[in-house]
């Protein structure tokens, strides 16, 4: 399926604009279809979990958010790497566009996780490895967005942000490891994470649909934001031309 994506379409802004122009309506409708189906299925038709009851339904919004928060960062980091290696303008725009989306998903992951944690483990927040890592990831996103906003020269901002993204990716690995370590130091294994028993299809199918829906939403909004950036670039150039003329 990856092979179907014409990477040449993503190589330069012009091709990207025409490619996204054609794809976006489909992507939009697919997103809406998946999300509506997934939510309705999850809320109405999926059976309540025999252990966790109706609260398990929160999984349909929590798991996709958490998954997307990481996927968005992968896109951000990958684009930043491409930017540093090939100096692709479009790669910078992709990274810049992915960040606020990733931050939103991370925020949702944290909030829905808290709402799920209270009925499940009795507390809204637990300094467990995964929520803690997600909190740190949220800060990473905020810092990255702040860097883009604070540096006025967009070219410089792009370079700086790319460096930050790469350093952040290395750090994400280190943080994950150190937080796991820190957790084993402090948690006397009292918290028994309910190991999800093999999920019944009536549960993981709507979950998959929601996850796909979230992913399509991310990609759709990513493309729209990238188009916005391309237009901003053109506006800047046109303005400079008009001033010079």
């Amino acid at each position: 399926m990856i092979a179907m994506v014409p990477f040449s379409a993503l190589a330069n802004p012009h091709r990207f604009m025409s490619f996204s122009d054609r794809m976006l309506p489909w992507m939009g409708w697919l997103t809406a279809l998946l999300l509506v189906t997934g939510f309705i299925w999850g809320l109405f038709f999926a059976p309540p979990d025999y252990q966790m009851g109706e609260s398990a339904r929160i999984m349909f919004v929590h798991v996709p958010s958490a998954w997307l928060s990481m996927f968005a960062y992968a896109v951000l980091a990958g684009a930043s790497l491409m930017s540093l290696i090939w100096r692709h303008n479009l790669a910078d725009m992709a990274a810049k566009s992915a960040a606020p989306l990733g931050a939103a998903f991370t925020f949702l992951g944290l909030v829905t996780g808290a709402l799920w944690g209270q009925p499940m483990w009795g507390t809204f927040w637990e300094w467990d490895a995964r929520p803690t890592s997600m909190l740190v990831l949220f800060f990473i996103y905020l810092g990255y967005i702040a860097l883009w906003e604070t540096i006025e020269d967009q070219q410089k901002a792009a370079r700086a942000a790319a460096i930050l993204a790469i350093v952040g990716s290395i750090n994400a690995v280190i943080v994950k490891f150190s937080v796991d370590w820190w957790n084993t130091l402090h948690q006397p294994a009292s918290l028994s994470r309910l190991d999800a028993p093999a999920m019944h299809w009536s549960f993981w199918v709507p979950l998959l649909i929601c996850a796909l829906g979230y992913t399509m939403l991310f990609l759709t909004l990513l493309f729209v934001r990238m188009r916005t950036e391309v237009m901003r670039n053109r506006i800047r150039r046109l303005r400079m031309k008009q001033v010079g003329a």
Binding site: G143, L147, V175, F177, S178, V179
Partner: peptide
């Protein structure tokens, strides 16, 4: 990364905080 930014101190704190977490942990 922030040397050109005026009053970049707070931004540095935000950028560096995730990087400092492992140091404090260990």
């Amino acid at each position: 990364l922030t040397v050109g930014v005026r009053r970049g101190g707070l931004l540095i704190a935000l950028l560096i905080m995730p990087l400092y977490v492992p140091v404090v942990i260990f």
